[in-house]
Structure formats: C-alpha cells, structure tokens
Computed example of a mutant assay.
Amino acid sequence: MSAEAPERSTSAPGDRRIVPARTPRLFLRNRAIDLALASPLILAVLLLNPYTLSTGTINQQLVAQILAGGDADGPAQPAGLIPRVLVTLLPHENAHVILALVGALLGGRLLHYLLAALWRESVAVSVTTACLLTLAASPLFAFIALTNFPLILAMTLFAMSVVGAMRMAMWNDTRAGFNAGATLLLAVLSHPLALVCAAVLAVSMPFLPHARGQHEGSAGRT
C-alpha cells in the first residue's frame, strides 16, 4: 500500500502499518484524494486575477530570473536548481499560472500525507478533520502553495522523505530508505530550508526504532 493511504495491518487488531504493496487501483484512488484535497487551491487559481499571482511573488521572481538568462546576483546555487530547470520548460507567458496550479496540486499531496499520518496514529476523525481544515483554510498555506513553488515543492518532497525514513527505521524497508534519501536530496535542491529539515530528520533517525517497539507493544495490547 502506498505511504499516503496505508491499509490496516492484519498482524494485530487496530494496528495501522504502512504496507508496501501497490496496485494501479490504489494509485488512482490516491491521486483522486490528492486532487480532491487540492481542489480549493485549484479553484482559487482559476478565479484569481493572473496578475495577482505574478506581482511581487517568488514565482514571479523565479520566472523573471529565467527570462533574464539567470540570476543577476550570481550563478545558480544547488538549492533552487530543480525549480529553475522546471521553469525553463514552461511557456514563459503563462509560467506563473502553471506554477500556481502545480503548487496547488502539491498542496493537495501534502495534505494527503498529513491525513495519512493522522489516520495511521488512530487520531479521532473529528481531530483529523479539524487539523486538515485548519491547515487547508490557512491563508498562509494557500499563499505558499500558489506563489512560492520552490518552497511547496521542498515541503512535499520532505514529507515524502519522512514517510520513507519512518518505513525504513520501523519496518526495515530498505527500498523506502533509498527513496527517502533520493527525495530528501531533491528537496534540498528545491529550497534552502530543506537543509535545516534534513538536519532535523538526521538527528531524529536514531530514535525511530524505539517508536517501532512502542507501536508494536500498543498493537499487541489492543
């Protein structure tokens, strides 16, 4: 099962583990959930004046730098390399709108990871709903998703790497560990903030196996 929509494990009642099996049906279901969670942001992009998305925003600055042939302050740094490359592939006249739409989809993906994490920890439906609505309705979250493509990309990639790191540490899933390292590298190449997040994740990794023992113990007592 995918990380964003884990199934209940059959090993113990009430144990919600991440099962690595993946199917096309599951993939389509997860993408449908991503799209549903991203729909308010996509609607906002379609309703907003395009100039609102292209005036004084990180996306606008990024597109302007590409149109100018590079960063006027110096050569491109490793952090931010991926957004720069992606922007060069877009039609420049509509690049800011496309970046906003992709950012909206990434925002839905990020909300999906949060939903899966809360579900996996058996958080009450009311609490899960409140958390999702609080984040989804936050003007800051919408602002980041629609106007700061490098940051929302890094946040989503970091969330993917956290899921993979947890699967590796708690369930000895080496494939997930490799994916976690790859997505963490992509996050670092998307935004400088990911460097700090990567350091925090590295410090917390030795403690994750202890969480596995607590999780199995609580499942066995259910």
Rank of each mutant, 00 (worst) to 15 (best):
L140G: 03
R22Y: 08
R167G: 00
R22S: 12
T147C: 14
G103E: 02
A176S: 15
L115D: 14
N94E: 11
A199P: 10
G14L: 01
N148T: 15
L115Q: 15
Y113S: 01
A145K: 02
V203C: 04
L118A: 08
L135V: 10
L115F: 04
T88E: 13
L208E: 02
G181P: 09
A202L: 15
I82M: 07
A72F: 07
V196A: 13
E7I: 01
P206N: 09
N148H: 10
A169F: 07
R31T: 11
R29K: 08
G217D: 12
A180P: 05
L208Q: 12
A44P: 00
A64G: 07
T134W: 08
L86N: 08
I66E: 13
A142P: 02
F149M: 05
R8K: 05
G217N: 08
L89I: 05
V200H: 09
L132N: 04
R17V: 04
L186A: 12
A137G: 15
V162N: 01
A176H: 00
P40H: 07
L101H: 07
T129H: 03
S190Y: 03
M155W: 01
M160P: 00
E7V: 04
A116I: 00
Q60A: 13
S2I: 11
S190L: 03
T128H: 02
T10N: 11
T52R: 08
L99A: 03
A12R: 10
V63S: 07
T183N: 15
G181Y: 11
E4W: 06
I66L: 10
L185H: 00
V203M: 09
L115A: 11
V188K: 00
T174L: 13
L111H: 05
V188D: 00
G164S: 00
L67T: 08
L115H: 06
A100P: 03
R167M: 13
I82T: 05
A36W: 07
S138Q: 05
A124R: 11
P91R: 09
I42Y: 05
Q60G: 11
L184V: 03
M1I: 03
A76M: 15
P75M: 12
F158N: 07
P91E: 04
V63P: 05
W171V: 07
V87N: 06
P6G: 00
L114D: 02
I58P: 04
I82C: 07
P192T: 09
A182I: 10
M166S: 02
L46H: 02
G56A: 10
D71R: 10
E7R: 14
P78A: 09
F178H: 09
R84E: 11
Q77R: 14
P75S: 08
S122R: 15
P20W: 03
A116W: 05
L110C: 03
L135A: 09
L111C: 01
V200P: 01
L106I: 07
S190C: 14
T183K: 07
T183C: 08
C131H: 09
A180S: 13
A12P: 00
L81H: 14
P78N: 11
F141M: 12
L114F: 01
L26S: 15
L186E: 12
G108D: 06
I58F: 14
L193I: 14
A100V: 06
I152C: 02
I98Y: 15
I98V: 13
I66G: 02
G14Q: 00
H191A: 04
I42P: 01
T134Y: 04
L140S: 14
L151D: 00
A211Q: 15
S218H: 13
G74Y: 06
S2A: 04
A64H: 04
M166R: 03
V188G: 01
